[in-house]
Simulated scan of single mutants.
Amino acid sequence: METTQLEGLISMLFVLGILVLLVLPSVIGIVRDRRIDRQLREAEQGHLKDQKSSSKPTEPSTATWYAEGRRSKKLVSS
């Protein structure tokens, strides 16, 4: 291997190393985001299974109760 070929090989490896260093943070971020998305999906599916298996009826919130009361008063007073 001649000197010019060796210099070319070293230069090419150096450029590839810099490219890897530039791309690596993006790849790590993508992998991390996918892992978090997967964990959120699993948690949501687990939460939905818990809700479906529950036989206890849900109570309406105070805001819903108040809004329904105001609607019925409007109908009565009209």
Rank of each mutant, 00 (worst) to 15 (best):
S55Y: 06
S53A: 11
T64W: 09
S61W: 05
Q45G: 02
S53Y: 02
S55W: 04
I28W: 09
R70E: 07
E7M: 15
M1K: 09
A43R: 01
V76D: 10
R38Q: 07
E7L: 15
Q45P: 00
P57W: 05
S77Q: 11
K49T: 03
K52D: 00
Q45F: 00
K73A: 10
Q51L: 12
R34N: 14
S53Q: 11
S54V: 01
L13N: 10
D50N: 01
T4G: 02
P25T: 07
V27C: 08
L13W: 03
R35V: 06
R70T: 07
M12W: 00
L48F: 04
R35W: 11
T62R: 13
L13V: 12
I10F: 10
G69Q: 11
Q45A: 05
L13M: 13
A63Y: 07
K52Y: 00
F14D: 10
E42I: 00
L75V: 04
S72D: 09
K73F: 12
K49L: 05
M12C: 05
L9M: 15
S55H: 07
E7A: 13
L6I: 12
K49I: 03
L24D: 07
E42V: 01
R32H: 11
S77H: 08
S11A: 15
V76S: 10
D33K: 13
M1T: 05
S61E: 02
S72C: 03
E44N: 06
S77Y: 09
T4Y: 07
K52W: 01
R71P: 00
E59H: 06
R41C: 01
V20C: 03
I36D: 00
W65P: 00
L24F: 14
I36C: 01
L16E: 13
R71N: 06
I28V: 12
T3Q: 10
Q45N: 08
K56S: 09
L21W: 03
K49E: 02
R34E: 09
L16G: 09
S78D: 02
I30K: 09
T3R: 11
G69S: 12
S53R: 08
R34H: 14
Q5I: 03
R38P: 00
